[in-house]
Write a protein that binds this DNA or RNA. Structure first.
Lengths: 119, 119
DNA sequence: TCGTTGCTCAACCATTAGGTTGAATAATAA
DNA sequence: TTATTATTCAACCTAATGGTTGAGCAACGA
């Protein structure tokens, strides 16, 4: 159940979540974590940047509530939390009716999306 | 017709759209425009900031493809374009399956989700 | 104990973002 | 023409962002 939160807090969460998703590296991290937990090192490996930079991105994701970091030995396994994604999707969903009703031709896009299920 | 776009361009569009939505003023503008077109002055009126600042926000929204500005007399009526919202929603939608299956374990949420399920 | 691994913290740098004010522009009204 | 209205442009400021490198720290393996 989603309990009541102040509008302000919810707005701040949306700031954080949309802001976190506004970076391609962070979206790639989210994508990666969607297929399973990973350590910072594992997450950093594919990127042409220092792991410190990736660690910073993880902190942004963590502040947005999208990532949870625990401890196991020297490692900090990261786990994706989807609730903020739901919140963001919910905000966008408020406009779904608008675009579905007044822009029927956009059904084309939705259909295309189904075909190319990867971003 | 919408032709094929490179992944890179799509990534940049997502950068722009999520970035545009990461600001509460801009989300409020989107919300306002969802209920109908408006001029810059009308859009600026509710905010405690200069209309130049609002004009800047509109430019960000415009660069993200979310707003289209035309001319009518001295005014620049703004119109919401929803296609980028669809793109953002589509990206989030790629994870819907993930979060639906994870809510599955709590099966309370699954029932809620199914009510609004849509491709 | 000592060295290595995995990561964070701190300082720094360049760029961008969000705001301000003041001037410029373009269309309308007088 | 001149004035007014609606908006943008330009310059500026401050703070935040995204990256770097180097040091520090905690946990493990030898």
């Amino acid at each position: 159940m989603v309990e009541q939160r102040s509008l302000e807090v919810r707005e701040q969460q949306l700031d954080a979540v949309f802001g976190a998703l506004a970076d391609p590296t962070r979206r790639a991290i989210v994508r990666r974590l969607a297929s399973g937990d990973a350590t910072v090192g594992e997450l950093a490996e594919p990127f042409a940047m220092s792991f410190q930079a990736v660690s910073k991105h993880l902190r942004v994701l963590e502040l947005a509530g999208l990532v949870e970091r625990s401890r196991r030995a020297q490692q900090r396994p990261c786990k994706l939390r989807i609730e903020p994604l739901v919140a963001a999707g919910g905000w966008l969903g408020d406009y779904r009716e608008l675009w579905e009703s007044s822009f029927d031709r956009l059904d084309v896009h939705l259909t295309k999306k189904k075909g190319s299920a990867h971003a």
